[in-house]
Simulated scan of single mutants.
Amino acid sequence: MEQEDINNSDIRLIFKDFGYSPYNKSKGEYEDFVSLIKGNWTLNFKLNCKDTSKTYIINKSYKVNNKKVHVKTVTLSPLSVKIKSNGKYNHFISKVTMKDSTVYSGNDFFISNTSSYSTIGMDLFGRSESYASFSKILNPKDIKSITINDEIEVMMP
């Protein structure tokens, strides 16, 4: 699926009532919405941003538990990282290490992973893309490495 480029578009956000849905721990579910301020608000703005992401060609193979993983590219932006790879390996970004030795992991970013596989003859060939969105803005030039599944450390050029 191809993403639509919405840059330079007019954006309209419409809000109704300000409030929250309380979480009931004993039931393990959210309760009905509690309205704090009733009303309607509309926010209009033009989305105008510059894509500052940079894609690095890695083209390096790694072996983990007798499985070969070939990391093709890593794309970095101030808010995210994306890794494209091939191999019979389901992976996720587990850690980002900065040049100053600061490590971001766990709650420091949100992870998303997509994989697709096709059968070619008797061999199963996989393609995978993993994403991590950072919870704060990072300078991509300061990223030293990306770690996959706590096993593969992909060094940035």
Rank of each mutant, 00 (worst) to 15 (best):
I137D: 04
Y56K: 06
Q3R: 13
S130E: 07
M122Y: 11
D5G: 11
M122R: 14
F134Y: 06
G39T: 09
K82S: 13
T114P: 02
S118W: 07
V71A: 00
K60C: 04
K16E: 14
G39A: 12
Y131H: 09
Y30F: 14
I58Y: 04
L36S: 05
N113W: 00
T119K: 14
I120K: 07
L36N: 11
T42V: 13
V64R: 00
M1H: 12
A132Y: 11
I152H: 04
H91Q: 10
G106R: 11
R127D: 14
T114H: 13
L36I: 06
K63L: 10
K60I: 02
D108T: 12
T147M: 09
G87E: 04
G87K: 03
S133Q: 05
S130F: 03
V64Y: 01
S9W: 13
K95D: 03
I143L: 10
E31W: 09
T97N: 11
S145Q: 11
R12K: 15
N40Q: 08
V34P: 05
I120D: 03
F92Y: 09
N24E: 03
R12H: 03
S53C: 02
N90L: 13
V69R: 00
N24D: 01
D51T: 05
G87T: 09
L43E: 08
K60T: 08
K72A: 15
K144D: 06
P22T: 06
S115A: 15
